[in-house]
Design a protein around this nucleic acid. Structure first.
Length: 421
RNA sequence: GGAGAGAUCGCAUAGUGGUCGAGUGCGCUCGCUUGGAAAGCGAGUAUACCGCAAGGUAUCGAGGGUUCGAAUCCCUCUCUCUCCGCCA
């Protein structure tokens, strides 16, 4: 949610931001409803004040006058209730519209209509070259017995997978490697719940849009998280943090669940796009003035993690039209996938400025005692499945075996090459 | 899953229809005192919204109801704790 004051004071800037994000929202209606709401507040609170005042007099009144006073107050009570009903309706309507307004892009974000206008910022390493015919990760993974989607189909259905043996070990190695890299930077590790309630999921804004991506456990009214970002953000809702405790950084490890509704036909084979995968996610709470710097920092962490694995990748600047609602700026890291002869998204980092925090009511108390909304940011440390895909394909050898990236070797129980069984 | 108890201002507690947005203690902040500190003394110590301001309104787990008036009475829900069952 953006700040209503911003709309009052600078509606043109908000309209421009919505245009840049291809969001069709009626800002003028918001302004009208806001004015109406404030007028109703003044009227109803004035009436309430009168009622409160005169109610007190009832207690002091002589018994003879009491009945008459109470009779008069009954009228005020009815009037107040009518006004209150109008106020509630107006507020609800305003709130509904307000929630549809996306976060505004930061000034440095390129304006563009969709992903075709995203642009490469930097590139690390040349695409991997092979002096043999490289295979795709599924061919490699199945042959090595470390990925099994066929049996996953048997027990779960399409878009699930088993990671087995060295495949599973790679997951834990990635976790260890990421922790070793991130903990010295002040990230607190966290294993969050993956089932969250309606308030938390709604607070993160995922129920207004994209609801059909989310698994809902109807019997218990719980939702499966699509990313630990949803839990880590919500875990501090309705809290006021002290300025001295910021930035507060977490690195969360969790399974992530996505229905992938509407992605039929895309990436159907293998484990690139599945209903369940594990992910390490960075999350920061910061003061507003340092959030842009923190965003750069999260991106630098992502680059460091990928560079340590020596995986070819590039950094993509996401244009305004391709930003999600909460994001004010986003960078994606795409890693080279030889079998597809292209880069695929493995990492993404966004600053949500105060957009999520306002909905979640997460604030900061300055040293001088003033209170304001803080900023939230998130970034992928590793989407494990996709990173394993990139490792298998880029580190494959002519005989179908896989070299283990040096950075992961300390965590692989002595395994340096994953060979056929 | 069964039975019971509870949820008040950072913490601990008081408060059963009007003088309660709310007392007391602890904590914290500032001041006095001191060579310095402790103790002691004094003052302060929530958030949001509306309003140019004065000020007003709301919030005692959440939502609804009764009443001229609700922390206090009624209903629903959530969470916490204890015992039993089950379990990693």
């Amino acid at each position: 949610m953006i700040d209503i004051k911003l709309i009052r004071e600078n509606p043109e800037a908000v309209k421009a931001g919505c245009r840049a994000k291809n969001a069709d929202v009626d800002i003028d209606a918001v302004i009208r409803l806001d004015a109406e709401r404030r007028e109703l507040i003044q009227k109803s609170e004035g009436l309430k004040a009168q009622q409160n005042r005169e109610s007190e007099e009832v207690a002091k009144a002589a018994p003879a006058e009491r009945a008459a006073k109470i009779e008069a107050l009954k009228k005020i009570k009815d009037e107040f209730r009518a006004l209150e009903a109008r106020l509630d309706a107006t507020s609800a309507e305003l709130d509904k519209l307000l929630r549809l307004i996306p976060n505004l892009p930061r000034p440095d974000v390129k304006v563009g209509k969709d992903d075709s206008e995203n642009f490469v910022i930097s590139t690390f390493m040349e695409p991997t070259k092979f002096d043999f015919d490289p295979k795709d990760y599924m061919t490699l993974g199945e042959k090595l017995g470390i990925i099994d989607v066929e049996r996953a189909g048997k027990v779960s259905g399409a878009r699930f997978g088993f990671l087995l043996r060295e495949g599973a070990l790679l997951e834990f190695a990635l976790v260890q490697y990421a922790m070793k890299t991130l903990l010295p930077e002040g990230f607190a590790p966290v294993v969050p719940p993956v089932m969250i309630n309606e308030k938390a999921m709604g607070g993160m804004g995922y129920l207004d849009r994209g609801r059909d991506e989310i698994y809902h456990l109807a019997e218990d009214n719980l939702f499966l998280v699509g990313t630990s970002e949803q839990v880590i953000g919500a875990m501090h809702m309705d809290e006021i943090m002290n300025e001295v405790d910021l930035p507060l950084r977490y690195v969360g490890f969790s399974s992530c669940f996505r229905r992938e509704a509407g992605s039929y036909g895309k990436d159907v084979r293998g484990i690139l796009r599945v209903h369940q995968f594990d992910k390490l996610e960075m999350f920061s709470f910061t003061t507003p003035e340092v959030s842009d710097k923190e965003h750069e920092f999260l991106r630098s962490m992502e680059e460091r993690l990928l560079q340590g694995l020596k995986l070819p990748h590039h950094v993509l600047g996401i244009c305004s039209g391709d930003l999600g609602d909460p994001a004010a700026r986003k960078w994606d890291l795409e890693t080279w996938i030889p079998s597809q002869n292209t880069y695929r998204e493995t990492h993404s980092t966004s600053t949500c400025t105060d957009y999520q925090a306002r909905r979640l009511n997460i604030r900061l108390r300055r040293k001088d005692g003033t209170v304001e909304i803080l900023h939230t940011l998130n970034g992928t440390a590793f989407a494990i499945g996709r990173t394993i895909i990139a490792i298998l394909e880029n580190y494959q050898q002519a005989d179908g075996s896989i070299r283990v990236p040096e950075a992961l070797q300390p965590y692989m129980n002595g395994i340096t090459v994953i060979g056929p069984r």
